[in-house]
Amino acid sequence: MKMQSKTRTVIVSATSCIAQECARLWVIEKDAELILVGRDRSRTESVAQDLRVRAPQASIEVMETNFEDPQAIQTLADTIASTGKIDRVLIAQGILPQQADCQQDLNISYNTLMIDAVSPALFAEAFVGHLQKNNHGTLALLGSVAGDRARKSMYTYGSAKALLEHFARGLQHRCAHSKVKVVLIKPGPTNTPMTTHLEIKGIKFASANRVAKDIVSAMNRGKLVVYTPKIWFAIMTIIRIIPSFIFNKMNL
């Protein structure tokens, strides 16, 4: 069989800011092939256009799909897998509404749980099967430090990210005896359009580029769980061990 020379990377929700920064790092690698998956073809196409200027030699393909339709997700993963071996999958969709809006409007709650938890879990499920068949590849899911402990100002988003964490850990367990790696990334507050309405006193938001560098390196090394920036591992370790009777009195 002829060896496949290109490195094939699938980026789900390629228009997301962190995903774009990862794509910019991957596209300049030698023999890069990127498959950008988005909900909206024209928006995803403009991301592809940017990448084509950055790396004219890379192969870049745009695919559109419905992020909430299990059948469409399965078909997409099958289609991509049928045209060649997949080396990397990054699943990056996410929304961050105001907690108050989630409480007042169940549609917003539903959407958040769907886009932050159900949809990425379905994509992961659909792709991991193909990676296992080839006994090859790395899949990364974007969790969040907010998934480490739910709090009143962000529990809908946080609990969705917590679901993803458990999903990722389940996949890691399942793939433990194979060469397939599943990586869970937990970014701290990052400077992206998703967080523009947030302002947390005393906390400096990381740049999307910095987070992307950590994602790319974590995927290369096949790490199980990565906090980015690293300081969040220490912060969340402390936050997790605060007893509930104290935590619940805190204004977080």
Binding site: C17, Q49, D50, V53, R54, P56, N191, T192, P193
Partner: peptide, 19 residues
Amino acid sequence: THQLDHFIEFDAKTGMLSC
């Protein structure tokens, strides 16, 4: 404006760059 950071087109013959 830091999110408006996309390249749009580059003509390698003329050196015209849109971004």
